[in-house]
Amino acid sequence: MQGVAGVAACSTFLSSRMRAATPPAKAYTPRFFDGAEWDFLLAACDRLIPADENGPGALALDVPRFLDMQMDTPYAHGAQWFMDGPFVQGPDNLGYQLPYDPRTLYRRGIAGMNAHAATRHGRPFASLAPSVQDELLQAAEKGTLAFGDIPSRVFFDQLLANVMEGAFSDPVHGGNTRLGGWVMLGFPGARADFMDWVDRYGAHYPLGSISISGETA
């Protein structure tokens, strides 16, 4: 069933992907993260989702802005987690058992990453070369560092999960700017009506992504 519509659709996706790669002009002033924390987030986001030939990176998608805006939600205050003690540590497979909400994990985790960078390399994370930043992020991911009683893996997983949310959630939450994450992926967003496409087997969907705000790519 692939035909003319499929070909036209691919070029639509390509042109909107190029548009989405343009970085936003508007500056954002963080409300939760302080200067040093913000510098870390900008640098880390750029390594976690770099801009490349496959599409925009986390900075063009305003993922740091998303993270800062999320810090104001009940989720970041731990309102959706069971936070009653006692807090007893156990095997990893029994899940998260620390008394910290996401805001605290960010505060302590970023401070820990910067302290480690300073000890090891004499500079904060954001001032290091990208390859060195990657090494530190890999060490955090493997859990070879610890920030007080927070294993680095716990902080890294929190950060990575929220970065992915920022790049790929609806733009109403402050990330996925110009729907760039969705265009890169080929996800139509809130289009949500495929009655006429369900049996167009293997064909490229022709309509661009759309936000629940009505913004289109």
């Binding site: 987690w81 069971f82 007893v88 029994l94 899940g95 998260y96 058992q97």
Partner: peptide, 9 residues
């Protein structure tokens, strides 16, 4: 084992 709370979905 000591059972631990399922703290996050």
């Amino acid at each position: 084992q000591t059972a631990l709370p399922y703290r996050r979905m």
